[in-house]
Amino acid sequence: MIAGAALAWKSLPPAQRRMILILSAAVALANVAQPYPDLAPLQHGPTVILLLASPWLLRRWPLSNGSAACLLLFLLLHTLGARWIYSYVPYDRWSRALTGTDLSSHFGMARNGYDRLVHFSFGALWTMPVAQAARRYGGAGRGWSLAIAFAAIGLGSALYEIFEWLLTVVAAGDTADYYNGQQGDMWDAQKDMACAQVGSIAAVLLLLRRRA
């Protein structure tokens, strides 16, 4: 098993090996003086599993460096949000330190909006890798591959929201609420899915323009 893992690692392009190391370092740093240790495993566990499996996955289903970079950027955004369980990402504090004003006041936001950014980024940054996989391994044409990617983003978003709902059923109330990051918005799930679809539409339009 160790030999197989080493072979998979060596078979990756150097740029993709560096991406895996960057994400590994980011996850490690995100857990230094972890402010929410009870929820950290839920937030970072899937990323750690994906990190461990990524050499094998990328060897079995290779992606271009551009697609891998899209996935890396999304996972970095997620890792940052996961440190503060999304609802408490202190971007207003950072903004005041840099510019003297906070983003919430500037944009009229009544809630922490970092989770919306990451849902949008899910659609925007996963569309190209999924479309590329559909073309390479599913035999889809360019147009169909983008349609498949758009549909896959919607499916992925819905499955994630269902997972969050199931968590509220089996987890303690406070834990589930903190993890979900609903912040009192009864339409949070629908808005999250809409953000992902808007991000995917933006990516599809960009890729079509790039083709032209």
Rank of each mutant, 00 (worst) to 15 (best):
Q132P: 00
Q132M: 05
F163H: 06
R111K: 14
R111Q: 05
I148F: 04
W165F: 15
D115T: 01
Q132C: 00
L166R: 08
V169W: 13
I153K: 09
R111F: 02
R136P: 01
A133R: 04
Y160A: 00
R136D: 03
I148D: 04
G113Q: 10
S145R: 08
G154E: 06
D102A: 02
Y114P: 13
W126V: 13
D102Y: 00
L167P: 00
H119Y: 09
L117Y: 11
G154Q: 06
V170E: 04
L155P: 03
A171F: 12
A152Q: 03
M128Y: 15
F107V: 09
L125P: 00
T168Y: 07
S121K: 10
H106V: 05
W165S: 12
G141F: 13
F163I: 03
R111W: 08
V118E: 10
F122R: 10
T175L: 15
R116K: 14
L167D: 07
S157A: 15
I148P: 05
A152K: 02
W126P: 00
W144E: 07
A158L: 03
F120M: 13
H119G: 07
R111L: 06
T101G: 12
F107R: 05
I148C: 11
L125I: 06
F122H: 09
L146Q: 08
A158E: 04
G173H: 14
R135D: 07
S104Y: 00
R116W: 09
S157C: 02
A110P: 02
I153T: 11
S104I: 00
A151C: 12
D174F: 07
G156F: 01
A151E: 04
Q132R: 02
